[in-house]
Simulated assay, not measured.
Amino acid sequence: MLTRIDHIGIACFDLDKTVEFYRATYGFEVFHSEINEEQGVREAMLKINETSDGGASYLQLLEPIREDSAVGKWMAKNGEGVHHIAFGTADVDTDSEAIRDKGVRVLYEQPRRGSMDSRITFLHPKDCHGVLTELVTAADPAAHKGEEDH
């Protein structure tokens, strides 16, 4: 069962400048940052709030590190902006199978590692009214509190 909006993914050309915009404009601070080689992005998670299920909601800022990454290809067509929405779930495996059984294409056969050691999969945007949708099972949030992996 989907429990929350885990994050909104925002593609950007310059991660540092975009982080500074969100810090200066809204007061959001980086909760976690990392380079995800598999996804081909450098990212920063800006924590917005805690949620009633023990998780949190974030803005995920994504700067492609390769032109051939999914985010890089998307930005070549669309420029900067909202890339995807992610819903939190306690069990990405079960929920992705249930959604697949309803005829929605799930992009990964098996969930993969996402930000902060989460487990993720994506749903095809053509099956979700034009919205790339991610399902996320978060790792223990205490394990990454304030951590920055560069």
Results as ranks from 00 to 15, higher is better:
59 L>I: 13
43 E>Y: 15
51 T>P: 00
33 S>T: 06
37 E>Q: 12
18 T>E: 08
20 E>M: 08
61 L>V: 07
40 G>T: 05
64 P>G: 11
17 K>C: 07
39 Q>W: 13
32 H>D: 00
56 A>N: 09
32 H>R: 08
26 Y>I: 11
56 A>P: 00
33 S>L: 00
51 T>Q: 12
58 Y>R: 09
44 A>V: 07
60 Q>I: 10
17 K>L: 11
57 S>E: 01
63 E>V: 11
49 N>V: 01
61 L>P: 08
15 L>P: 14
64 P>E: 03
31 F>H: 11
12 C>E: 01
29 E>G: 12
57 S>A: 13
45 M>Y: 03
25 T>A: 15
65 I>T: 11
13 F>M: 06
59 L>F: 15
26 Y>E: 01
28 F>A: 14
35 I>P: 05
63 E>N: 14
18 T>M: 10
29 E>T: 13
52 S>G: 07
61 L>D: 11
28 F>K: 11
47 K>Y: 05
61 L>Y: 08
49 N>F: 02
37 E>F: 01
32 H>S: 08
55 G>K: 04
61 L>Q: 07
15 L>E: 05
33 S>V: 00
20 E>Y: 03
30 V>N: 10
32 H>P: 03
55 G>A: 06
39 Q>N: 05
45 M>R: 03
14 D>K: 13
15 L>D: 09
56 A>G: 04
39 Q>A: 14
16 D>Q: 15
18 T>I: 04
23 R>M: 00
21 F>D: 00
56 A>I: 02
44 A>I: 10
63 E>T: 13
38 E>F: 05
14 D>L: 07
14 D>T: 07
59 L>W: 06
25 T>P: 00
15 L>A: 14
40 G>N: 05
36 N>Q: 06
43 E>Q: 15
63 E>S: 14
21 F>K: 13
63 E>Y: 02
41 V>R: 06
23 R>I: 00
31 F>I: 00
48 I>N: 08
19 V>C: 09
51 T>M: 04
13 F>E: 11
